[in-house]
Amino acid sequence: MANEERFQQIVDAEEKIEPTDWMPEGYRKTLIRQIAQHAHSEVIGMQPEGNWITRAPSLHRKAILIAKVQDEAGHGLYLYSAAETLGVNRDELQELLHQGKHKYSSIFNYPTLNWADIGAIGWLVDGAAITNQVMLTRCSYGPYSRAMVRICKEESFHQRQGYELLIRLCQGTPEQKAMAQDALNRWWWPSLMMFGPHDSDSTHTEQSMAWKIKRVSNDDLRQQFVDMTVPQANYLGISIPDPDLRWNADRGHYDFGDIDWDEFWRVVKGNGPMNRERVAHKVKAWEDGAWVREAATAYASKKRARTAA
């Protein structure tokens, strides 16, 4: 049986493709791109949240936030490891990120400007990520799907923590509630953009669906997210910044306004508010650490030589 045919049979039978199995070159490339982008997003995502670690308003919140940022770093590690099963290595993927040749989620190109942003990232950004990622636990590529099972559990914990942070603000003083509203105003649309272009404009969707890397379309996921999130905003008593948002009884879904696609493409192409800072921060940390990594390598080889002697 031809490789290609056998591969598609495994995929169609809902079995997993494992690293040693034959796979089409396009499948491998798509997965590397997607998993690396996902890993980069976790790592870059440490910056906007890390921005509030030193200023968290209470020790309890500081502990939650440090643990969360640490989880993101851990997700980055599993995902780079999943990508490595496809024959690339972490350093080479990071290098592509540093050179601007690899993307990460555009959501992290927005700044965190008030404490409520930490709640909004948990509630909206992690919420949108989970909506996207639950389908990835059933992805046809074994290592990726298994990494996603663990990541989704931790992300849903983060999402509840973020929402709980906002509940506290919304039940607090008018000033605290205003922080939550300000955060929702700034994070709502970028969160909807996290699902990517409309299905009609999405270049990767069709092939990814056939390979069962992706299982639900961008627009369907976005609708799911809106339907889930609107009642949560209502419970908080803050308003979603969309005058066109209303329940559509015929469709059984919320209708919502048009995304500003100019903004979407501007940020994707590197011209969002924080693109340059995020990459520069990452590159600086990496370059500042070069002598440390060299020291570790030098010490390890000295130690090997001594053991051998």
């Binding site: 440090i66 640490q70 590690l77 940390a285 650490g289």
Partner: peptide, 21 residues
Amino acid sequence: GELISNAPELEIDIAVGNISL
């Protein structure tokens, strides 16, 4: 806590976060 996301590699970021915590 100031250091998190600035470490020489991801494993050290995780360790620093852990120690800070």
